[in-house]
């Protein structure tokens, strides 16, 4: 092992051990607080964590050593070694802390079934009188998902070429464009559609238009990523051949790249529409209009029979979309 690499591994191993033990003591202090209502000062946790971490590292027993110095031979089975038990312990304590944080209560789960009676009876006795109203809202949802997808296609299609490593020349401009497009797409994708819906419902007012904008932004970002990955996977041979004929860059993209990606693009787009229909319901909850908004209103009014109708409709649409998009994608694969 090279000297710098060795130092790097040692630092990584020590940091791992410190975090490992600080986390364990943090969990212990949380449990003591939770069960015995005694507060342990946080600097105690840190000091104990650092101390135990360092000691185990120096003694050569630690997890960090095991992970970053895999060349050190340990013939022992995990249950006969210190690192094995510490990993077991950290998993166990994480589970216990999780159980308490989430307030898991099996007693409630099995005894308070009656509380949900209203909604369940609503599902099996839906109020069909409001069907027309629901269908209107449902149409809103489906069309807002469709428009979001349709508007996203040309934007994502154009952007994907600039986000494909193999098409962007490795010059200053090429790299800059590639990095900017990639970064923006990643940031926009990491913001959930539901957050966009909140932003747009303030911007353009509550309603399907806000929902459409939210889904569109999110779709552009994800499709750009999916599309550009598809471009990065194309056969570079035809690109070379078309370039050699004296074609311009745009002609090269149109004749050598587009024919290779058209069918995966269609498959991704249909899949995206499918996702958008499902998301449109959720987005409706936070001001995106459509069936989601109606569901929220009826639920708050405790009209369980109306809620029942809506749930059935959503289930039917999602199921149909799922089937259709799977079938279409299957056919596209064969092309």
């Amino acid at each position: 092992m090279k000297k710098e690499n060795k130092i790097k591994s040692i630092i990584q191993a020590i940091l791992t051990d410190l975090l490992f033990w600080i986390y364990i003591f943090g969990c212990i202090s949380f449990l003591i607080n939770h069960w015995f209502e005694k507060t342990i000062p946080s600097n105690f946790v840190v000091i104990f964590g650092i101390a135990v971490g360092l000691i185990t590292f120096i003694l050569g027993l630690s997890v960090g050593r095991k992970v970053f110095f895999p060349t050190i031979r340990t013939d022992k089975k995990w249950h006969k070694s210190f690192w094995g038990w510490s990993v077991f312990f950290i998993l166990l304590i994480t589970f216990v802390v999780g159980w308490n944080l989430v307030e898991v209560d099996l007693y409630k789960l099995f005894t308070k079934f009656r509380n949900a009676g209203g909604i369940l009876s609503g599902i099996f006795d839906p109020n069909l009188n409001i069907l027309t109203l629901c269908l209107t809202a449902l149409a809103e949802t489906i069309y807002l998902a469709l428009l979001a997808t349709v508007f996203a296609i040309p934007l994502a299609f154009s952007l994907s070429f600039f986000a494909a490593r193999n098409l962007m020349p490795r010059t200053f401009i090429g790299n800059t464009v590639y990095i900017i497009v990639r970064t923006i797409a990643t940031i926009f994708r990491s913001i959930e559609a539901i957050v966009w819906a909140i932003i747009f419902s303030v911007w353009v007012g509550i309603g399907p238009f806000a929902g459409m904008l939210a889904l569109m932004i999110h779709s552009v970002a994800s499709l750009t990523k999916l599309y550009s990955e598809q471009i990065e996977n194309i056969d570079p041979g035809p690109v070379e051949a078309i370039k050699a004929t004296g074609a311009s860059t745009l002609q090269t993209w149109l004749f050598a790249v587009v024919p290779q990606i058209i069918s995966p693009y269609l498959a991704f787009t249909i899949y995206r529409w499918d996702i958008n229909v499902r998301m449109a319901t959720i987005v409706g909850f936070v001001g995106g209009g459509g069936i989601g908004l109606l569901l929220l209103q009826q639920q708050q009014l405790l009209r369980w029979q109306n809620v029942g109708v809506i749930i059935w409709l959503i289930a039917i649409v999602v199921w149909t979309m799922d089937m259709v998009s799977a079938k279409v994608r299957e056919k596209l694969q064969e092309m």
Binding site: D235, G237, P238, E240, A241, I242, K243, A244, T245, G246, A247, S248, F255, A256, P259, Q260, S263, M335
Partner: peptide, 21 residues
């Protein structure tokens, strides 16, 4: 460069045709 390239045709080991056209 495009005008120079069009006078020089190229043929490849892997043919490099666009297969679905």
């Amino acid at each position: 460069l495009r005008f120079i390239r069009r006078k020089i045709a190229m043929i490849f080991q892997q043919f490099n045709l666009i297969k679905n056209l």
